[in-house]
Simulated assay, not measured.
Amino acid sequence: MATDTASDAGTASTNEPLHVDGQSQLNDIVTENEVVLTDFYADWCGPCKMLEPVVETLAAETDATVAKVDVDANQQLAQSYGVRGVPTLVLFADGEQVEEIVGMQGEEQLRSLVGRYTE
């Protein structure tokens, strides 16, 4: 499995999750893409690991851009969105935060949530 580094995240295809490092990079992604599903996660979090293949599938199969934010590396960014637990998913549409979901979610739930904003 390929791993993204911060240096190539800007050129990564939108079919793969973009690994975000910092507020300005997230702002750019949200500004440049109509619908952005942002996964706030931690490497030590079991439910986050279970959610990872789901968000990768959504990145590949939906019109949403998926961003991943490591809360340990980006504590201020997580705090600015009120992230208290992981995983937390924040959905942006047209540059605005429209949804926030805390905890493990099924693929179908997330697919229909994304679909409300991409269709």
Rank of each mutant, 00 (worst) to 15 (best):
L26P: 00
D70Q: 03
L77Y: 00
L110H: 05
E96D: 15
M50I: 13
P53D: 13
P53R: 05
F92T: 06
D70R: 03
L110F: 02
N27K: 09
G103A: 05
S112T: 15
E99H: 06
L18M: 10
G106P: 02
C48K: 01
G10R: 13
T88N: 02
D39Y: 04
E99I: 05
Y41Q: 08
E34S: 09
A9Q: 11
V98H: 09
G46Q: 14
V102D: 01
T38C: 06
A6M: 07
Q75H: 03
T11F: 07
Q79N: 07
N33E: 09
P17I: 10
V83S: 02
D72L: 03
Q109N: 10
S7R: 11
K49P: 01
S80I: 00
S7I: 15
D94L: 03
V35Y: 09
D8Y: 01
D70F: 04
S13N: 12
D39I: 11
D63M: 02
M1R: 14
E96R: 10
E100S: 11
E52A: 14
V86P: 10
M50Q: 15
L51P: 01
H19M: 07
L89R: 03
F92Y: 13
V83F: 07
Q76V: 14
T14V: 12
G46C: 01
E52V: 14
D4M: 08
D28Y: 11
D39C: 09
R84F: 13
Q76G: 11
M104V: 14
N15P: 00
A42L: 13
D63E: 15
E107W: 01
Q23F: 05
H19V: 14
E61K: 11
E108M: 08
T38Q: 07
T118D: 02
L91G: 06
V98R: 09
D72G: 10
V54Q: 04
T118K: 00
L26I: 07
Q25M: 09
D39N: 15
E34W: 04
A6Q: 10
D28G: 04
T62N: 02
I101E: 14
Q76P: 00
L89P: 06
V90P: 00
A60K: 12
V69L: 02
L91R: 00
T3I: 15
A64F: 03
V102E: 10
D28C: 04
E61D: 15
